[in-house]
Structure formats: structure tokens, C-alpha cells
Simulated scan of single mutants.
Amino acid sequence: MAPPSESRSEIDKQLSFALYGAVGRMIRMHKPLLEPLGLTFPQYLVMVELLGGSPRTVGDLGAKVGMDTGTITPLLKRLEQSGLVTRRRDAKDERRVLVDLTPDGEALRERIRAVPDQINSACRITDEKANEIRETLDEMGRSMEA
């Protein structure tokens, strides 16, 4: 019998393929947790960031969650229409738009903060293992940017 690495197809040996599949599965795992909150996965990422401190500029939010202005602006408009955030021009610099949580957005804090534990549980991994995976992925990202 061939060792496991030899019996795998060429695509199955690719780290990028494993990561691509894992990303898709991870986003799909979030869907039933986020639907009751009325959030898509990208909206969830923005809400997590805003719960960490707001108001924030559109540019800062986009940079933090890896979205350009053309992607994050319509997403923020939908969050605003849902009553979860407000957008307003910065009085000090009218070119900047500040995004802040509404009371309804703030009210989702505990439910949003519960999602990572629910994901870890569904994946059957501990917080420590999740941290280890995240650190490895962050390290890979930093190496690729260097």
C-alpha cells in the first residue's frame, strides 16, 4: 500500500487547494449562525471590527477587513439600511466618512461575540488550536507579503 502522500491526487497535494476548500466550508458554517442576525459573512466581519471600537473611517474598516472602497461602501449602505450602523461625514475632514454602531447594532454584541465559540465547537477544535491555526496562517501571510 502506498503512503498517504503518494496516493493523493496532484490537486489534493496543493496547500492552496486545501486553504481554498477550507475558506468555503468556513464561510458556509457561518451562514446558519449569521442568518438569524440578518448578516452576511462580510457584514459580520465589519460588525466584529466595529464592536472592537467605533466610530471608524470607511478606509480604516476596509483595510482591516481586506475590502476596497468599492466593496465596503455598498456593504455599509446595506448595514445602514438594516439600522445597524450610521455613516456620517467627519466634521474635521469632510472627505472621510465615519461609521458607527446604532443601538440595534450594539444590541447584537453578545450574539456576534458567541459566533467564534460556535464555530470552534462545530469544528471540534479548542480555542488553543484555533489560535495556533490562525497564527500559522498569519505567519504565512506575513511571509508572502515580505
Results as ranks from 00 to 15, higher is better:
A2K: 00
P3Q: 08
S7E: 12
S9M: 08
S9Y: 11
S9Q: 11
I11D: 15
L15V: 13
F17K: 12
G21C: 13
G21Q: 13
A22I: 08
V23Y: 13
G24Y: 09
I27P: 01
M29A: 12
H30C: 11
K31R: 10
P32Y: 10
L33W: 09
L34S: 01
L34G: 00
E35C: 01
P36I: 05
P36Y: 04
L37H: 01
T40K: 06
T40Y: 06
T40P: 01
F41E: 05
L45V: 06
V48W: 14
V48E: 15
E49Y: 10
L50M: 06
S54E: 13
P55Q: 02
P55E: 04
T57L: 01
V58C: 00
D60W: 04
L61R: 00
K64D: 01
K64R: 07
V65T: 00
M67K: 02
D68S: 01
T69F: 03
G70Y: 02
T71Y: 00
T71D: 01
I72H: 02
P74F: 06
L76V: 00
L79V: 04
E80C: 06
Q81S: 12
Q81W: 12
G83S: 05
V85D: 04
T86M: 12
R87F: 01
R88E: 11
D90T: 02
D93Y: 09
D100Y: 09
L101F: 08
A107S: 10
L108F: 05
R109Q: 06
R111I: 03
R111V: 05
A114S: 11
A114G: 03
A114Y: 06
V115K: 06
P116S: 07
Q118R: 11
Q118Y: 07
N120S: 07
N120F: 11
S121W: 12
T126A: 08
T126N: 04
D127S: 13
E128N: 08
E128A: 15
A130V: 09
E132M: 13
E135S: 10
T136R: 13
L137N: 00
M140T: 04
M140H: 13
G141V: 11
G141N: 13
R142P: 01
S143D: 15
S143W: 15
M144E: 15
M144W: 15
M144I: 12
